[in-house]
Design a protein around this nucleic acid. Structure first.
Lengths: 176, 176
DNA sequence: TCCACTCCACCAACCACTTGGTTGAGGCTA
DNA sequence: TAGCCTCAACCAAGTGGTTGGTGGAGTGGA
C-alpha cells in the first residue's frame, strides 16, 4: 500500500499507525485489516515495495567502466528524485535487526545488488578497465557501504560517487 | 541514562518505553519523570551520550597517513567492541529528520568529525602523503559516507576500510 | 425475469491493553 | 523544617485487533 510507504517515509516505522494509513486511503482502519491481516503484513508489503523500486537499475552497458558510472549515476538520480525511498531503506535496515521477515526481504535485495556490482567489477578486472586490479568482493562492499552512507545525505552523493569513480576507474578519459 | 541507551540499541526508539527503562534501573516510571521531565529529554540524553562516546577518537599522531590509518582503525575497533553504539547512531540519524534537537546534537557531532578528517587530509596533501592530491572536502565526505555505510555491518568494516586506505594512501609501505 | 446465494469491500462499535504524563502522600537525609 | 527522591494510584488518549453487520456486484438455477 502506497499510503503506508509514504507514512513510513514521513514518520518512520515508529510513527506508522494503521488508523492513519487507513485514513489516508479513505477507508476505516478495520477495513485495512481486511487487506493486511496484521500490521506486520503491512510492514512487509512496504519492504517488498521499497526494494522492488530498485529493479530499474538494470544491467547497464557491457563496457565495465560505463556500467559502473551509470550504476552510480542511477543511484544518484533516484536519490535526488525519490529521497524518501532511501529513507525507508534505512528504516528497513534498522527494522531488519528485529524482524526476520524484513531481514529476509532485505537480504535478497542486497544479494541482487551485490551480484550486479560483482559482475561489473569482475568484468572490469578482466578488461583492465580499472586503475589497478581490484579485489572484487571488497570493492563491492566498499561501493555498497558508500551508497548506504549517503542515503540520508542526497547532496553529498554526487561528489562522493564521483570521487569513488575516480579512484576505481582512474583518471583515464572521463565521459568519452 | 545508560539503561535507556541500551533499550534504544535493542529495540530502537520505536521500542523505547519509559516504564521499561525505569524497570531496568529498578525504579518506578514516575520516578523517572523526576529525572527526565519528558520522554524527549531522555531521548536527547541518549543522543548526547552516544555522540560523546566518539570523543575517544582524538587527534592521533602527526604523520597524516598514520593518523588516517589510526582513525579508521579506531572506528573499526569501536564497531567491533560496541556495535550497539553505531546502531543507535543510525537510529539517531533517522530521528534527526523529525526532531530538531536531535538533529542539532548530531550536527555538532558530525561537524567535529568532519574537522578532524579535513585536517588530516589537508596535512596529507601538504606532506604528499597520499597516492594523489585529494579534494579534501569531498574525500572527507567519502570517508564519512563509507563509515556510515558499515555501521550496521561490522564484519564488512575491516576489509572496506583497508581498501579505502589503500586507495587514498596508495600502496607505499604499509605498517612501518 | 426473478430469486436465492455467495463473495467482497466496507464500517461502527467495541475490547483489552499500553502509552506518556500527573498527583498526592510518604520517607530519607541534612 | 526543608529539599529531594521515591512510590502507588490514577488519567486521558491512544494502540492493534475483533466482532457483527450492511450493501452492492456477480452467478446460477428455475
Amino acid at each position: 500500500m502506497l499510503a503506508a510507504f509514504r507514512r513510513v517515509a514521513e514518520a518512520g516505522f515508529e510513527g506508522l499507525r494503521l488508523r492513519q494509513v487507513a485514513e489516508d486511503v479513505g477507508i476505516d482502519h478495520s477495513t485495512l485489516h481486511h487487506h493486511f491481516a496484521t500490521k506486520q503484513d503491512l510492514v512487509l508489503a512496504v519492504a517488498e515495495y521499497a526494494t522492488r523500486q530498485f529493479w530499474v537499475l538494470g544491467d547497464g552497458p557491457p563496457d565495465p567502466a560505463r556500467a559502473l558510472r551509470e550504476h552510480l549515476a542511477g543511484l544518484r538520480r533516484m536519490l535526488d528524485e525519490r529521497p524518501e525511498l532511501f529513507v525507508v531503506t534505512v528504516e528497513l535496515d534498522l527494522r531488519a535487526r528485529r524482524d526476520p521477515a524484513v531481514d529476509d526481504a532485505l537480504r535478497r535485495h542486497e544479494a541482487g545488488w551485490r551480484e550486479v556490482l560483482s559482475d561489473v567489477l569482475t568484468a572490469g578486472n578482466a578488461a583492465g578497465a580499472w586503475a589497478a586490479p581490484l579485489d572484487v568482493a571488497v570493492t563491492t562492499e566498499l561501493v555498497i557501504a558508500t551508497a548506504k552512507g549517503v542515503r540520508l545525505a542526497p547532496a553529498a552523493a554526487g561528489p562522493v560517487f564521483a570521487q569513488l569513480e575516480a579512484m576505481v576507474i582512474g583518471d583515464r578519459g572521463e565521459q568519452p
